[in-house]
């Protein structure tokens, strides 16, 4: 017989893992900094080389913080989508929400120069990129939601999400064909995904967006739990369907859209992390799952970023490739081992 676990111990473990992943993440990079120097710099002690201090505080710590926001936020958006669409394979990438954000970003990065003939896009503010990507993902999310209302079949929903992905990537290709080399390069670099290229202003903005999305998710905890029974049961439990659904969609759009705007389209984190989390936290209670999924996603993202940095070399791999290389086998493994993915 299964006994209910207290998850306090698991939370302590996962917090420790977060701390370790964080230390690992900030102690590795293109410049080799001894671990002892990293530690003493963190503790505010003087360091042998002055530039190390600068690298750690001005580059690596903001980057690790961004990785926490990106990994946690994307995983949380995946959890919200899996519950909302009652589908274990839902996630920001699968349902075309990341593609929507890409289209929004592409229209801004490449479309504006096309339309207005301006070659410089330097004046485009960070906020406009965030808004464009969020609006793009939000629109796709709304359309997918409308389709999901008519089609009860969960497989059909995923296929529609994939089709949206195809449509948006086709539109992006058309845009790319007509745009200047400079803006195309900017878009390509954006689409590789990165957590290291953000200015401090962008990091604060991203933190605000992720915080807002997380707060909205926390406010939706009761509704999310009721949705586990299905919408009719949720209605009979006094959940106001329209309001809760809208709240969850806004939270998802903010998280997936905002993050994609700043860090690029990062694959598989949103889909895989909720399932990985349930291997440790064997519950469906969102009061436990929301913090657990956020922390797990943050850890995974920092580890992926550490790998992408290719320790001790100047090369940085696209993080999107790393998350796919890690995430896709995880999903396959879960499907094969568990036979049926549960949500």
């Amino acid at each position: 017989m299964r006994t209910p676990k207290s998850y306090r111990f698991s939370f302590v473990l996962i917090l420790l893992a977060l701390l370790l992943a964080w230390l690992l993440n900030i102690s590795s990079g293109s410049v080799t900094i001894p671990f002892s120097a990293t530690l003493s710099s963190l503790l505010g002690k003087p360091v042998d080389v002055a530039s190390w201090q600068y690298i750690i505080w001005e580059y690596r710590i903001p980057k690790a913080f961004t990785a926490i926001l990106v990994g946690g936020g994307l995983s949380l958006s995946g959890l919200l989508m899996q519950t909302l669409f009652r589908n274990p394979l839902a996630g920001p990438f699968v349902l075309g929400i990341s593609s929507g954000a890409s289209l929004g970003a592409a229209l801004l990065l490449m479309g504006t120069s096309l339309l207005t003939g301006l070659t410089s896009i330097a004046f485009l503010s960070d906020i406009s990129l965030a808004i464009a990507a969020s609006v793009g993902s939000f629109l796709v999310l709304l359309v997918v939601m409308l389709v999901a209302q008519r089609i009860k079949d969960t497989m059909a929903l995923l296929i529609i999400g994939l089709m949206f992905g195809s449509i948006t990537s086709a539109l992006v290709s058309v845009l790319a064909y007509f745009s200047s080399a400079e803006s195309l390069q900017r878009f390509i670099f954006w689409s590789f995904g990165s957590v290291g290229d953000l200015t401090s202003g962008q990091v604060f903005l991203l933190a605000g967006i992720v915080l807002l999305g997380t707060l909205l998710s926390i406010l939706s905890i009761k509704a999310l739990n009721a949705f586990l029974l299905g919408e009719n049961y949720a209605l009979s439990l006094g959940v106001s369907l329209k309001k809760s659904r809208l709240l969850i969609i806004i939270a998802t759009g903010l998280l997936a859209g905002g993050i994609t705007a700043f860090a690029g389209p990062i694959a598989f984190v949103g889909l895989a992390v909720p399932h990985l989390t349930r291997q440790i936290f064997d519950t469906m209670e969102h009061r436990i799952l929301i913090p657990a999924v956020f922390l797990y996603g943050a850890i995974l993202m920092m580890l992926c970023d550490t790998l992408a940095q290719l320790p001790n070399t100047a090369n940085v791999l696209p993080i999107n490739a790393i998350t796919s290389l890690v995430g896709a086998p995880v999903v396959i493994w879960l499907l094969v081992r568990k036979r049926k993915m549960m949500f």
Partner: peptide, 14 residues
């Protein structure tokens, strides 16, 4: 129920 991953007690508690 949409999710059958709920335990008996969790489902009743809802």
């Amino acid at each position: 129920p949409a999710s059958k991953n709920l335990t008996v007690q969790e489902l009743i508690a809802l």
